[in-house]
């Protein structure tokens, strides 16, 4: 049974059939890993903690710089030069003191992703480059942890949710690599191409909504469907990502005991 304080605090969510009182308890037990502490994470993390998610692990080794301030509004000029994850953790604790927020000042890579994802119910890819995105997808698929990936650049935003147990030729759903089978990208990030702040915000909001729906057990989560918003044309699409039989991540391995010579696949037990 919820306390009077929590009942009041979460009353607008409790009203939703998707949530109810049970949903608040479910969110309080949820463990979410956030890869990246930039524009997406500064939107997603407050929404999750605000909604009552009990545990967040923030992973990034970046520091706050002046060029972050137009869109990463958990950070202020006083934070310039400080570790993003530590500033964000403090801000989130102020928002919801009951939340556990773990700040890990490390960039996600092959050496630490297994550890960073351990115990996670859900992974949120809020990173800013294709190399990390492919690694996060591969490790999430290998670990069987649901993934919500979001991204923004210029006037474009994209996001999709992936459930490893549904991905691959037997599940009829594609993974992130089925969508973009590339390991790196010359362009495509905010540093090289620029971004309008609200595009990151919209991608982050969509990502947060997907995350909460997944954690609450929504049976209608649009798994492996790419939401893309093109603000230059004022159009958006929801596109089904079908499995690529030749996908090096989900095309020919089981999710629980993946093993491959392909460097994009994490080794089991790393």
């Amino acid at each position: 049974m919820l306390s009077d304080h929590d009942f009041l605090r979460y009353s607008r969510q409790i009203m939703l059939p998707l949530c109810g009182e049970l949903g608040i308890k479910t969110l309080a037990k949820a463990r979410v890993v956030v890869i990246g502490a930039g524009g997406l994470a500064t939107v997603v993390a407050p929404y999750l903690v605000g909604a009552g998610v009990g545990y967040l692990r923030l992973c990034d080794d970046d520091i706050v710089s002046v060029s972050n301030l137009p869109r990463q509004w958990l950070y202020s000029p006083a934070h310039i030069g400080q570790q993003k994850v530590r500033v964000m953790a403090a801000q989130l604790k102020a928002l919801q003191p009951a939340a556990q927020v773990e700040a890990i000042p490390e960039y996600a890579d092959n050496s630490n992703l297994c550890r960073l994802m351990s115990g996670a119910d859900l992974v949120l890819d809020c990173s800013d480059n294709m190399t990390t995105r492919q690694l996060v997808n591969a490790y999430a698929m290998d670990a069987g942890v649901a993934l919500v990936s979001a991204a923004a650049i210029g006037l474009h935003a994209q996001a999709a949710a992936f459930q490893p147990s549904l991905c691959g030729p037997h599940g009829n759903h594609g993974c992130y690599r089925c969508l973009y089978p590339i390991d790196s990208q010359r362009a495509g990030n905010c540093q090289s191409e620029g971004v309008l702040g609200p595009m990151v915000g919209m991608a982050g909001c969509y990502q947060a909504a997907l995350a909460l729906r997944i954690l609450l057990g929504d049976p209608n989560v649009p798994w492996s469907q790419l939401w893309r918003l093109d603000s230059t044309l004022g159009e958006h699409q929801l596109l089904r990502i079908q499995p690529d039989p030749s996908c090096s991540v989900c095309g020919h391995v089981s999710h629980s005991n993946a093993s491959s010579d392909d460097s994009s696949i994490p080794n089991s037990g790393v």
Binding site: R186, A187, Q237, L239, R240, D244, S246
Partner: peptide
């Protein structure tokens, strides 16, 4: 760069291998 693009028809992404 063609490596950076994806293509969809009938609201479904067509895998690059196809």
């Amino acid at each position: 760069d063609i490596n950076d693009i994806a293509v969809a028809a009938d609201n479904t992404v067509i895998p690059r291998s196809q």
